[in-house]
């Protein structure tokens, strides 16, 4: 398939996954804040940090952090490239360039998702309408995923969509872990322990992992087990290792991807060998850093191998030799 189209498919999937993940994150945070006593509630700031958008936010709003500003920034801000509205618009623009290559219903669903996100924005920013609005965005993103899985040929193009989705998902999981654990309370303050559990539960819930955690781990919510589940589970579709497993299999099936595959295997190994029980909060932060640098490497390797590589390498003479 065309290298340009492969790249656009990959990016469309990344944008859609990002929009869905941010929508979950906002809903779970809102829920969490209702459960925590005012004094210890982390507020809305961490969401901006998770998106790596502190600088962009400060440029717009300075130090003023309140619910209305942060939510407008994360959901509706067209100037902020990571806002839900912007990422969905980008996903649609990408999809428009390969409408011909995906099933018609998938395009209609993406198009509808964009119209919904834009048209219902006011209700989405209101306190009462927000939950339903974000839930609908999540549901519609899932519908796109479902149509692609159920109606599109599982061909090369589908593989690039999967690559984009899994890499973005792994990235978001590590971001959420990183920021959330930094704001979590220390283990020593025993009277606040129940609130700590609530926060770990919210981490799981932002990744829709609470139920699956209970099923797989068979224990109540502990820091160690949550980390093990979100980083190392081979069953939970949002765990980092599971995403990497799927990435690796896709690249292997595509063929020609020795370089990205090497990076993926390296990251898989570091996850498997990680001993969560000895991991300090600082150690976790450093480990997440290593993972994120790794994801950037995976992206660069995919870009070079599949999306740009052929173009750079295909000088006219090589083309003739083919």
């Amino acid at each position: 398939m065309l290298a340009r189209v492969a790249g656009n498919m990959y990016w469309m999937a990344r944008y859609l996954e990002r929009a869905e993940d941010v929508a979950r994150l906002v809903n779970v945070n809102a829920n969490l804040l209702l459960d925590l006593p005012r004094g210890i509630a982390p507020g809305w700031r961490p969401l901006v940090t998770i998106m790596g958008a502190d600088a962009a936010y400060a440029e717009k709003h300075g130090d003023a952090v309140d619910e209305t500003k942060v939510l407008r920034f994360l959901i509706a801000d067209r100037e902020h490239a990571q806002s839900i509205l912007s990422t969905i618009a980008s996903a649609r623009e990408n999809a428009r360039t390969f409408r011909d290559a995906i099933p018609r219903e998938a395009w209609e669903e993406i198009n509808g998702l964009y119209h919904y996100t834009r048209d219902q924005l006011q209700s989405g920013l209101s306190k009462r309408g927000r939950f339903g609005y974000l839930k609908e965005i999540i549901r519609r993103s899932q519908t796109v995923t479902g149509i692609l899985a159920g109606c599109m040929n599982h061909d090369e193009g589908y593989s690039f969509i999967q690559l984009g989705r899994k890499l973005e998902r792994a990235d978001m999981t590590t971001r959420i872990l990183d920021v959330r654990t930094a704001t979590l309370l220390s283990n020593d303050v025993s009277e606040l322990r129940s609130f700590e559990n609530i926060q770990w539960m919210s981490v799981l819930k932002s990744l829709t992992g609470y139920q699956m955690y209970r099923l797989e781990m068979q224990v109540r919510v502990h820091r160690e087990d949550v980390l093990r589940f979100l980083l190392q589970s081979r069953l939970f579709p949002r765990s980092v290792l599971r995403c990497l497993d799927e990435l690796g299999q896709r690249v292997e099936r595509l063929g020609g991807g020795e370089h990205p595959l090497r990076v993926v295997v390296r990251l898989q190994r570091s996850l498997v060998e990680l001993d969560v029980s000895t991991l300090s909060p600082e150690g976790l932060h450093e480990f997440v850093d290593v993972l994120q640098i790794g994801f950037a490497e995976v992206h660069a390797a995919l870009d070079e191998t599949y999306f740009l590589g052929s173009r750079v390498a295909a000088s006219a003479s090589e083309a003739s030799a083919a």
Binding site: L2, S310, S320
Partner: peptide, 17 residues
């Protein structure tokens, strides 16, 4: 892209076609 053999190729994920 047009090659030295004056044929037309497209850039694909697996090189020129």
């Amino acid at each position: 892209v047009v090659g030295d053999d004056d044929c037309v190729y497209m850039h694909t994920t697996r090189g020129p076609a």
